[in-house]
Nucleic acid binder design. Structure first.
Length: 475
RNA sequence: GUCCCGUUCGUCUAGUGGCCUAGGACACCAGCCUUUCACGUUGGUAACACGGGUUCGAACCCCGUACGGGACGCCA
């Protein structure tokens, strides 16, 4: 490993996203991953993934897979195979013992029960619940029998520890506020704060970008880096995302896990764009695609204040991205949703109709759920299910009108311009406004009162199907 | 309780001492467009948390207060 510190000769930027697989990847974690990804790409560096699965009680393989899937969905695939923290326990212990040998750490023979009492007493006396350092300078010869000691960092007691954070600026705390944290448990396993430092060092991470709930823990991590004489990475603590009411984001605020956003019909690029704009901006830019994001994103431009999740704005952006999306891709997604969520069997004829009408369908959808809903009529067969509003349109007079217009349509080429011309001619000949002709047709053709332009809808259905539906509705 | 961080329209934000009568976006309201619904378009309502300084001048700098968030585990 190079002994040139990054400050002297900037190393290639390496960032990492380090989730623990104790739940699905949620939207806050997704943004953290995004910022890590964007920063690494912006600087031409690497984006890595480390799975912090050392909490064997709560970590599961299913969650690990879920996180991997979610990242893939978002397009945030790491550049190297993921590192699993649980596989590195021996290395964490090794470093702890190195610190012990160097006099930077010491054995502590306190029992968990003893520590609990220490904390309770401190709180009762109005002091901070900190370890009092009782084994810091005590002779291990006095160790009680039968207690497996933990290893604690021998943290500096005077002066202050400073984190020069790329987002928060310089943040300092008096060392007297920090206690000697445990780096290796009595059973020989590492604690989180220690493992993170060892892994970040060994993975040559240059920039630690994470949620600001880790900010105050960073002081202790810095002390471990310093004890080992390792160069410090740069830190960037980004603010958390809150729910609409300002409290911690949770289930009751709506979708929180990335996979739920997929299920609710959000496009990954819309989610990424929305997430990026939460806490980051570039002038008045709102719609920023991946390439432009990489070009413009810099971690120092991230704001310090927490922001709230606004589903309305996400939905609006989703509409923007749906309109921009490729028609084949949208069709594929809609077909999938029709089969799985609407329980429709979609044959190739229906698929072709959906694909044909997609340029018009996507103009009026804000989510893939809406898009699938709006396309469903193309996959149905007569008799169509009628929405109440559509049924109300099909009055006896409307049915007569349908029979008349059907005759015209039967003699028309089913192309959009020809259909448009035929309908206009029919309306004029019968002294009606176009809308008076279009709405009954729409009801007959779609079973609803909302659809793309009636000419395009007719064309997508094709002459035989369109006439069959009109005939059925005008009976 | 102690320590750390934050605070511009309802929300996301622009703003780095004069360009601010505070700009944009979403949402909301009204109009236009129109073959329904969307899209688009025109206009409107709406914010510098509060109090002190510093300065010729403060949304911007400093200090307090209030409110919000986070951290204080042999969890991650």
């Amino acid at each position: 490993m190079s002994d040139i510190s990054p400050q002297v000769a900037p190393a290639r930027v390496r960032t990492r996203f380090a989730p623990s697989p104790t739940g699905q990847l949620h939207i806050g974690g997704a943004r953290t991953a995004l910022f890590n990804f964007l920063y690494s790409r912006h600087t031409g560096g690497d984006f890595l993934l480390r799975v912090e699965d050392t909490d064997r009680e709560r970590s599961t393989d299913a969650f690990t897979q879920g996180i991997l899937d979610s990242l893939a969905w978002l397009g945030l695939t790491p550049d190297e195979p993921p590192v699993f923290q649980s596989t590195r326990a021996a290395r964490h212990a090794e470093v702890a013992h190195e610190m012990l040998a160097a006099g930077k750490a010491y054995y502590c023979y306190c029992t968990p029960e003893e520590l609990r009492q220490m904390r309770e007493q401190a709180v009762a006396e109005g002091r901070s619940p900190r370890y009092d350092g009782r084994w810091r300078d005590r002779d291990p010869a006095e160790a009680p029998a039968g207690v497996k000691p933990s290893i604690r960092l021998k943290a500096p007691r005077d002066g202050e520890t400073v984190v020069d954070d790329l987002v928060q600026g310089p943040v300092r705390v008096a060392n007297a506020e920090l206690d000697d944290m445990i780096i290796l448990r009595g059973d020989g396993t590492p604690t989180y704060l220690h493992a993170v430092v060892v892994d970040d060092h060994d993975m040559a991470i240059t920039h630690v970008i994470r949620g600001d709930d880790h900010l105050t823990n960073t002081f202790r991590q810095v002390q471990v880096f310093q004890a080992m004489g390792w160069p410090l990475p740069r830190f960037a603590h980004i603010p958390l995302i809150h729910g609409a009411d300002g409290s911690k984001l949770s289930k009751r605020h709506g979708a929180v896990s990335v996979m739920e956003f997929d299920a609710q019909g959000y496009l990954p690029e819309a989610v990424c764009n929305y997430l990026m704009r939460l806490g980051w901006s570039h002038g008045d830019l709102e719609v920023v695609d991946r390439d432009e994001a990489i070009r413009l994103f810099d971690i120092v431009d991230v704001n310090r204040g927490a922001s709230r999740m606004d589903y309305a704005k996400l939905t609006n952006l989703n509409g923007v991205y749906i309109r921009k999306a490729d028609d084949d891709r949208l069709t594929k997604d809609v077909l999938r949703r029709l089969i799985h969520q609407h329980d429709l069997s979609v044959g190739s004829i229906a698929a072709d109709r959906i694909r044909t009408l997609m340029p018009h369908l996507k103009e009026r959808a804000k989510s893939m759920l809406e898009l699938a809903q709006a396309a469903a009529f193309l996959a149905r067969v007569v008799p169509l299910p009628m929405e109440p509003k559509a049924a109300a349109i099909l009055t006896p007079e409307a049915r007569l009108l349908l029979r008349d217009v059907a005759a015209d349509l039967a003699a028309t080429d089913f192309t959009v311009p020809a259909l448009d011309a035929a309908l206009r001619a029919f309306a004029e000949r019968t002294g009606r406004k176009l809308g008076q002709v279009a709405q009954p047709l729409r009801a007959a053709l779609t079973g609803s009162t909302v659809s793309p332009g009636i000419d395009a809808t007719l064309a997508a259905l094709g002459k035989d199907e369109a006439l069959a539906r009109i005939a059925d509705a005008s009976r």
